[in-house]
Amino acid sequence: MQINFPYETPAYSGPELTLAFPALVDGERVECMITAEALEDHFGAASTRLEDMVGAFDTHRERIEAATRRLLSETRAQCLVLRSGYVRFYNANWRN
């Protein structure tokens, strides 16, 4: 499974408190999301405000993409929401 992440600004959803970002899985676009809770708990977002969430995402993009790549592989590129619990599990088990 070939997984790449185009460099695009993530899309903010205030009602859902998520950032959406794309992945390309074997050439097909898959929309991925990360929750505000995950960004706050693991990537230093100070709040659920757009600026804080995007800043944390940009600062930790490489780690977020690595966790997303793992989850996409595990779920065969199904609907993806990167939640705090998965990031905690990922960090505990696959950190370099």
Rank of each mutant, 00 (worst) to 15 (best):
W94S: 04
S13R: 05
A45R: 07
A45I: 14
R49I: 13
A56D: 01
S73N: 07
L80V: 05
G27F: 09
G55P: 00
A11V: 13
N96G: 07
L50Y: 13
M1H: 05
V54Q: 13
L82S: 09
H60L: 05
L17C: 02
G14H: 12
E40P: 01
T75I: 02
D26C: 09
M53T: 01
V25E: 09
T48I: 10
M33N: 07
T68D: 05
M1N: 10
G55R: 11
G27T: 01
E40S: 15
A38R: 06
R49A: 13
D58K: 05
T18C: 08
Y86I: 02
S47K: 10
A36W: 00
A66P: 06
E37D: 08
L24A: 01
L39S: 12
G55E: 08
E74F: 02
F57L: 08
L24M: 07
N4R: 15
E74Q: 08
G14L: 15
L19P: 07
T75N: 11
T68Q: 06
N91H: 15
P6C: 05
N91S: 10
P22E: 04
V87A: 11
A67E: 04
E37Q: 15
E65P: 03
L17V: 02
I34N: 02
Q78R: 14
M53Y: 10
M1E: 08
H60G: 01
H42E: 06
T35L: 02
L17D: 07
E37W: 08
R95M: 11
A11K: 13
D52F: 04
G44E: 10
E31V: 14
Y90C: 00
A23C: 09
V25D: 06
Q78I: 01
F57D: 00
N93A: 08
T59R: 15
F43N: 03
S13K: 04
T35D: 05
V87K: 07
T35Q: 02
L50Q: 15
F57Q: 00
L82D: 07
L71H: 03
A46R: 14
F89M: 11
Y90G: 00
G44M: 04
E8Y: 07
A56H: 14
E51Q: 11
E37C: 10
A38F: 06
A77H: 03
H60I: 00
V81Q: 11
P15K: 13
G14K: 15
R88W: 13
